[in-house]
Every structure is written in structure tokens, then in C-alpha cells.
Design a protein around this nucleic acid. Structure first.
Lengths: 210, 210
DNA sequence: CCGCGAATCAACCTTTCGATCGATGCACCG
DNA sequence: CGGTGCATCGATCGAAAGGTTGATTCGCGG
């Protein structure tokens, strides 16, 4: 762990990559060894290049999602650390990234010093979470009753796609009664009393992926 | 229009501002004279500094929206040109920016050369639209029957917030009959038959602001 | 001036949704 | 073993939403 920290930048915005380079190159112990404009390329580069930390965006214009790339990278033998750096702080994004094995999670509005510090923390193998992110994760732990079950999330996503209860029941091979039952539980957990309100809250909290 | 083009950068991400500086400073005829981390400050700086082109992000973390700032800036005497530079290409964002008087609209995934070219185009007072954006605007023009009216959009946004017809009618000082009437028209234009489906399609097409 | 679309409202009917009961099976955990 | 959470289903009833038809006002452009 001595010497320079080798970095891979994965972001689909050239301007952001340039900015990251400019910010990180001022640190004498950092070296940006590669850039990727999409998630698939990031995975490839992470396998071929010798990298210590990957700075990973989550949402790319098209193709693989950043959290999928993160999972692929952390599964590698002698894997580099993945530090997620994104604009979005929705629950769905955060959870996906953490489950995929991300070492840290930063928001793009972070000041440069914080960014550099997080890279060093990640390189040392310790988790680096932005305060906002840490808060959200704590919230989830504290109130387990609020989290939607897998099935409930599945139903809610179909609701968000505009399907009726009947359509959902056919899609999931359930009776309408079951769909309604799930919805009642969802309403209770989200504190709403209609499907559209449930979707609004879920999107707001980032409980479902759009 | 001789000499250097004076720029103001308005973006809430330090990394992006650094990246833009790095990219634009390589052009000999550009000079970045100021940066703003929020929309309100951008408006202030646009009034006090001598600026030719403002590079404006649309969504800031909190506070004023970029399109509002754009409107405020273009309303100034001897106003600078505003070149919108954002991640999002939803109809709602594009329309708001164009109506606010933006001279151009670029996406952040644009390559640096394109960016520099757009700045020069904007400085010359000509509109600079990314291909994707131009497409969308043309689409709107070509199919006027599909476009939602102002009122319809207003109703649909409240539906997306999870409000019932009754709640919407009170909010907009209408009868429920009118709200229903608007919804029927919306369903027809979007090709759906329920409020949740309408919201799904509208979000998908970027017709409403989230 | 007249047509047309947008916005507003009304009455009526059908379907869907939500609320409230209830019940069963299953898996996990202390 | 008993409790707890999840997933599944049924029945009922009132409320909300959607479909239909028809009508009025207003502004804009040919």
C-alpha cells in the first residue's frame, strides 16, 4: 500500500472526467491510469490494468448500470476498491451500490478535499460514506418495519408502470386479492392511501428504480 | 464580437466546474471570469460581471432552478447569452429552458470540441442545440396534437404527486368534472387509460418535471 | 365573422380501488 | 415449541376513478 494510488475513472461525461483528473492530479500520491466512458469498458479496464481504486459513476447514458459494473469488479480476484461517485442519492441507488460491494459512496457535489480524502480511505480498504449517505443507511437500519419486502417492491414497480391490479395479478400469477393485500401493506409503510401517492413517495425516496 | 469571449460557469458540482475550466481554458479566445455554485449567485454575477456567455446547469441541489435563473439573466439589459449545459434531456426541462430564453442547449456528455463550438455559436448570438435536443423540439412541432396543454400538464403533475381528483380540483380552484375532463384528454393524447399509466408515460417521455 | 381548440362544468353509469374483516401456509429464530 | 413476518387468498362495501354525452365561454387566426 506504499507509493502511489492508481486510479480508474468511470464516467460517461468527458467534462467530469477532465475535472476529476484535474482535481486528483494535484495530489502527488495519486495517478490516474485509465478512463472509461461506459460501465462495460470500466470492468474490462479494471481487469487488465493494475488499479487500486475505481471512481465509479452509477448512471451511464446507456448500457450497463454502474452498480452492475461494481459487482463485476469487486468479484474479480485481487479486486480494486470501488468508490461510487454519483449525482444521485436515492435509496435504490445506494442500496444497489452497497450490495454490489462498493467501498464508498460520494456525491458529486463534494468538495475536492473531501474527494481526495475519500480516495485515500478507500485505498486503505475502509468505507468512505458521505454524511447524507450514512444518514440514509442508518435510517434504514433503525426502522426495519419501513422497508418494503421484495414482493411488495415488485408490485409497486408494476404499479409505477401504470398497470391495474388485475394486470399485476396476471403478471405475477396472483389473485387480485393478494395484490390488494400487498398494496395495503405498502400504503401502511409509506404512509399514503392511494397507488399514485405510493408511487410518488417511492420515487421520491428512491425505493424503486426508474 | 472581437477579442476574448468572457464566460460564467454555473454548476453546483465543483468537479464539473473544474472540468469545464480545464476544457475551456485550452481555447485561447475563452476566458472564464466567474463561477457560481447556485442559480441565485449566477444571476447576481451575471449582473455585476461583464460576461458574454453563461454556461448554465439546470438542476441545482436546492434553491432556484436553472431555467428560472436563465429567465432572470436574459431579462437583463444588455444580457449575456445563456448556454444550458445539463445532464437531463426531458421535454419539461428543454421547454422551460427555451421559453426562458436560452440561446443553446447541450448535454454534459458532449465532447469538448462540441462544447467549445457551441460556446462560439452562442457568443455570436446563434442558437446551439445538441442533436438530441433539436430532434425533440422538431417532434413537438410535427405532432402538435400530442403535446399537452399548459393546464393539462399542470393537472398531470399534481396527479404524479399522488393527489386525488378532489384534491387537484381544490388546488386549482376547479370542479372535479373539469379535472376529469382534463384527464380524459390527457389519456387520449398519451394513449393510456388510467392516471398511473399516464404518469408512467409522462415520466418516460419527460413531459413533466420530477 | 365564424370556426376551432382550450378550458370550464354537469349528470349519469360502470369499473376499479381501497378499507376491513378474515384465513392459511411457510420459514426463520430464540 | 411459539412467535413473528411474509406471502397467499376470499368476501364485502363504500368511495374514487373512468367513460359518455352534452354544453358554455373565451381567444386566436383564417
Amino acid at each position: 500500500m506504499s507509493g502511489t494510488i492508481r486510479l480508474l475513472l468511470a464516467d460517461d461525461h468527458p467534462v467530469v472526467r477532465t475535472g476529476l483528473r484535474a482535481v486528483l492530479d494535484t495530489e502527488p500520491d495519486f495517478e490516474v491510469v485509465a478512463e472509461a466512458a461506459d460501465a462495460a469498458r470500466a470492468v474490462r479496464l479494471a481487469t487488465t490494468e493494475q488499479v487500486d481504486v475505481v471512481l465509479m459513476d452509477l448512471r451511464f447514458g446507456a448500457g450497463m448500470h454502474g452498480s452492475d459494473a461494481t459487482a463485476a469488479i469487486t468479484a474479480l480476484p485481487d479486486a480494486p476498491r470501488v468508490l461510487v461517485l454519483t449525482t444521485y442519492d436515492t435509496d435504490a441507488d445506494i442500496l444497489a451500490a452497497v450490495e454490489a460491494g462498493a467501498t464508498g459512496y460520494l456525491l458529486k457535489d463534494a468538495p475536492p478535499e473531501e474527494l481526495a480524502a475519500a480516495v485515500r480511505t478507500a485505498a486503505a480498504g475502509q468505507s468512505a460514506l458521505a454524511p447524507t449517505i450514512a444518514h440514509r443507511l442508518m435510517d434504514r437500519m433503525r426502522t426495519p418495519g419501513t422497508a418494503l419486502s421484495r414482493r411488495e417492491t415488485e408490485v409497486l414497480e408494476l404499479v409505477a408502470d401504470g398497470l391495474s391490479n388485475q394486470a399485476i395479478s396476471k403478471r405475477l400469477f396472483l389473485s387480485q386479492a393478494t395484490v390488494k393485500s400487498h398494496l395495503v401493506h405498502i400504503y401502511g409503510k409509506l404512509g399514503v392511501d392511494s397507488r399514485t401517492a405510493a408511487v410518488a413517495v417511492a420515487v421520491d425516496r428512491g425505493l424503486i428504480r426508474r
